[in-house]
Design a protein around this nucleic acid. Structure first.
Length: 571
DNA sequence: TCTAAGTGCGCG
DNA sequence: AAAGCGCGCACTTAGA
């Protein structure tokens, strides 16, 4: 990438110091300097004020969390650990680039929670890599990308930049937090769960439990123990094989409704009840720990707080500060759109253009109803073979052969033990040793029928994984591009007068419009009211820009469901 | 008393 | 009891 930014490698230096290497365009260090650990935020801030710098560091949680704590934000980074993982596994990268052998760069990044201060660096906590090792690894990564298979270097560079931007955003999202009203949350808990009783369950859970026990005529039965509950259900003549809601709801018995209610309330109580609120909401902010690229496909994971599982009913608690508002946006049918573009399937792209994709699929005559179209499309991307979904997929295959051919081919490669890659070049993991053994045993002359069926099932499982990998992974890349572009646009909006409309808490950058939440294909921006329209424009513009960045002029659009409002509720 | 595995359910 | 991908978390039971 012909970048105009200056590159600076930052790493551990002599005791108590951080070393900084300024690089020229060839990746050679042209000047070195050192700063005391506690002077680092000021030094970084000064360089950022000077101009566009790309900070090359071992890993973002370790270096960026302390900077954010000190009120310093950076524009660009290169996360050596995340990029290492991409290049190490990428099919387009050559074998002999020094990235394949197990090294310290393969270790997981440290938990950001313990590293909010630079003392952690001083104490020898954090990555072992000094600045020299970081520079050496960066040079390996640069040359590996430069030597990558024909036509793939640009994509890998883009992926590395997007991944690193994502790492910055993950740290910033944690620092800023999602504005959360404990009042609204507590109101919802009171309404749903009833009064809290000391040493016991909330009243409405207790009520539901009593109703179940009397309907089962089993006064002491435990509802939290699956085996005991199952036996009690059988004794009452409810012949289920599991205690899942889906199966229970198929039965007509007076115990069913209260049991389902019990499970629902209990879930809210244990997963997002008062204890969760006490632990995870501070100063009006929910601050989950995001783990960028925590999923093999490149999707983000989260750790603690269940950030990726906030129940929709709790959306009422997501509430902007006074004088501020929320811009909430999600992409409609991101994965099939990405699939259409990857496959260069103009028929599917046309069906998606400017409207609900599933409605377009119906109009194209592939399927009769929107519900069927959705079922079939999900089935195609997940690998459904049976049931209604599996039955409908062939209809889609006839109408959109290119798109369906791409996922079918990805599945075939996976079943054969091969690897597949996303649009930008993230490659799926190789088949494991156990998987290979299973397959070779099944193809031997002395293979039993059981060997064969086991191997067949494992192959199918793997095929469904690789089938979905290319779509889920490319969708994650699109989302990174969207986030990265949006972050830049938001930071260009001027900070507001702090006295006029200050957020209740958070870092300095949170005094102007900023990202507050991200979940696969959805973002929430917290913004002063005056900027709401500018933010909405930025959100839409960055979505269009992400589409072009990945897919060029291929005619695919990414329409957003966008809402501006005090709460983040969606219809 | 600890860990691992099973079950179920929340999210995309 | 899912079918059909990817996760994290709470709770229980089995096993060491």
């Amino acid at each position: 990438m012909a970048s105009s930014s200056v590159e600076v490698v930052l790493g551990r230096g002599k005791a108590g110091e951080v070393a900084l290497f300024d690089l020229d365009t060839s990746g050679t260090a042209v000047s070195t300097s050192a700063v005391a650990v506690d002077a680092l935020p000021a030094a970084v801030a000064a360089r950022e004020a000077d101009g566009d710098v790309r900070w090359i560091w071992s890993d973002t949680p370790t270096w960026y969390a302390p900077l954010l704590s000190a009120g310093v934000r950076v524009r660009r980074a290169w996360d050596l650990r995340l990029v290492h993982a991409i290049l190490r596994d990428a099919a387009s990268v050559q074998e002999d680039q020094g990235l394949r052998g197990q090294t310290s760069w393969d270790a997981a990044a440290g938990a950001s929670d313990d590293l909010d201060t630079l003392f952690a660096l001083d104490d020898g906590v954090g990555p072992p890599e000094g600045a020299d090792a970081a520079l050496a690894e960066y040079r390996r990564q640069r040359s590996a990308i430069a030597a990558a298979a024909a036509g793939t270097a640009g994509s890998l560079r883009l992926l590395a930049a997007a991944e690193s931007a994502g790492a910055l955003i993950g740290a910033e999202l944690h620092a800023a937090g999602l504005p959360w009203s404990v009042e609204a949350h507590a109101r919802l808990l009171d309404e749903q769960l009833g009064a809290r009783t000391p040493g016991g369950l909330p009243s409405r859970i207790e009520d539901a439990a009593s109703a179940v026990r009397s309907a089962l005529d089993d006064p002491g039965v435990s509802l939290d123990s699956q085996p005991k509950l199952l036996r009690a259900l059988h004794r009452a003549g409810i012949l289920v094989e599991s205690t899942s809601r889906w199966e229970l709801s198929q039965h007509d018995h007076p115990a069913v409704a209260p049991l389902i209610a019990y499970k629902k309330l209990m879930r809210l109580y244990t997963a997002n009840g008062w204890a969760w609120m006490d632990e995870w909401v501070r100063d009006g902010r929910f601050r989950p720990v995001y783990v960028p690229a925590g999923v093999v496909t490149g999707r983000w994971a989260s750790s603690g707080g269940g950030a990726l599982q906030i129940p929709r009913q709790l959306r009422t608690a997501v509430c902007a500060d006074p004088g501020w508002t929320l811009v909430t946006a999600d992409v409609a049918q991101l994965e099939p759109r990405v699939l259409a573009a990857m496959a260069r399937d103009t028929a599917l792209a046309a069906a998606a253009s400017g409207r609900d994709l599933y409605a377009g699929v119906v109009e194209a005559g592939a399927l009769a109803t929107r519900a069927e179209a959705k079922m079939a499309m999900l089935g195609a991307m997940y690998g459904a073979t049976t049931g209604e979904s599996g039955r409908l997929v062939p209809r889609l295959r006839r109408t959109f052969p290119r798109a369906m051919g791409l996922v079918d081919e990805a599945a075939r490669i996976g079943e054969d033990g091969g690897r597949v890659s996303t649009w930008l070049g993230r490659t799926s993991p190789a088949a494991g040793e156990a998987w290979r053994t299973l397959q070779s045993r099944a193809s031997g002359t002395d293979a039993s029928g059981s060997d064969e069926s086991h191997a067949r099932r494992a192959a199918r499982d793997r095929g469904r994984f690789t089938r979905n990998f290319i779509v889920q992974g490319t969708a994650a890349e699109w989302a990174l591009a969207w986030l990265g572009d949006l972050r830049t646009r938001l930071s260009a909006l001027a900070p507001v007068d702090v006295a006029d409309a200050a957020p209740r808490s958070g870092p300095a950058f949170a005094r102007s419009p900023h990202l507050a939440f991200f979940l696969h294909d959805e973002i929430v921006v917290h913004t002063p009211l005056a900027y709401a329209e500018a933010v909405a424009d930025a959100v839409r513009t960055s979505a269009a820009s992400a589409g072009r960045l990945l897919f060029g002029e291929f005619p695919i659009d990414f329409p957003l469901d966008l809402k501006v409002g005090r709460t983040a509720e969606k219809e």
